[in-house]
Amino acid sequence: MEDDSFELYDLKVEVVHRDTSRPMVCRHQVGDHFYLRGGNLEFPVERPRFGYYAMLAVLPFLMAKQRPTQRTDWMSTDAEIGCTDPNCGGAFRITRLDKQTYRHSEYTKEALPPA
């Protein structure tokens, strides 16, 4: 049987105050965070919220940040996404954590194409 494994990074997404010359005008607060493990978002019990607009800022980047990339790829080095409000000094830092191994067969019934 063909090996159908692949690896993804676990991610932590955290609110930071990147541009201190501008105030944090949105409802997110420094330190608000969540984890992405595989296809699951996990929120800490002590702070189980993360703003909808903040989530919209980071969602397009999460799948790419989960996947291994070359050292020279900007996705390997750039980790902060600015808030969608241009007046807000906040940003969202995406940190790669441990790699986990998953199996194609556990996520889809589509067959792998021939190698």
Rank of each mutant, 00 (worst) to 15 (best):
Asp85His: 10
Cys88Trp: 04
Phe61Ala: 06
Thr69Asp: 09
Phe6Ile: 00
Leu59His: 02
Ala79Asn: 04
Val15Glu: 01
Glu14Arg: 14
Phe61Glu: 01
Ala91Ile: 11
Met55Ile: 07
Ser5Gly: 03
Lys99Met: 09
Thr101Asp: 05
Arg22Tyr: 01
Asp19His: 09
Leu56Lys: 13
Leu112Thr: 01
Gly89Glu: 00
Val30Ala: 07
Phe43Lys: 05
Thr101Ala: 08
Pro44Val: 13
Ser76Tyr: 13
Met63Arg: 12
Glu42Val: 12
Tyr53Cys: 04
Ser105Cys: 08
Ala91Glu: 13
Leu36Pro: 05
Met1Leu: 07
Leu62Arg: 07
Arg71Pro: 00
Gln70Trp: 05
Arg71Met: 06
Tyr102Glu: 05
Val30Phe: 13
Val30Asp: 06
Arg18Ala: 12
Phe6Trp: 03
Val58Cys: 05
Glu106Val: 09
Pro48Ile: 12
Met24Gln: 05
Arg49Lys: 02
Glu42Asn: 03
Ile94Ala: 11
Cys26Thr: 15
Val45Arg: 14
Thr69Ala: 15
His17Arg: 12
Glu80Asp: 10
Glu7Gln: 14
Gly39Pro: 01
Val45Glu: 14
Thr95Ala: 07
Gly89Thr: 00
Val25Tyr: 00
Gly82Tyr: 12
Gly51Lys: 11
Tyr52Val: 13
Pro113Asn: 10
Ala115Met: 14
Asp78Lys: 10
Asn87Arg: 15
Arg27Asn: 01
Asp78Ser: 02
Tyr102Lys: 06
His28Leu: 14
Glu7His: 10
Gly38Cys: 07
Pro48Asn: 15
Asn40Met: 07
His28Pro: 06
Thr84Leu: 15
Met63Cys: 07
Gln100Trp: 01
Arg71Gly: 00
Pro23Leu: 08
Glu2Trp: 09
Arg103Asn: 01
Pro48Asp: 15
Phe61Pro: 00
Ser5Trp: 05
Lys99Val: 05
Asp19Ala: 06
Met75Val: 11
Gly31Thr: 04
Phe43Gly: 03
His33Asp: 03
Gly90Ser: 08
Pro48Val: 11
His28Trp: 14
Thr77Asp: 12
Arg37Trp: 11
Thr108Asp: 04
Tyr53Asp: 03
Asn87Trp: 08
Val25Arg: 07
Arg49Tyr: 05
Thr69Ile: 09
Tyr9Asn: 07
Thr77His: 14
Arg27Thr: 02
Met63Thr: 06
His28Asn: 15
Glu110His: 03
Met75Arg: 13
His28Val: 15
Leu97His: 01
Val58Ala: 06
Gly90Lys: 03
Arg37Glu: 13
Ala115Lys: 15
Met24Phe: 05
Lys99Glu: 02
Arg47His: 11
Cys83His: 02
Cys26Tyr: 11
Glu14Asp: 05
Ala91Pro: 10
Pro113Ser: 12
Met55Thr: 07
His33Phe: 14
Val30Arg: 13
Cys88Ile: 02
Arg27Asp: 02
Val30His: 06
Tyr35Asn: 05
Thr84Ser: 12
Gly39Phe: 12
Arg27Val: 02
Val45Ile: 14
Gln100Lys: 08
Ser105Lys: 13
Tyr9Ile: 12
Arg96Lys: 12
Arg27His: 03
Asn40Thr: 09
Gln66Ala: 07
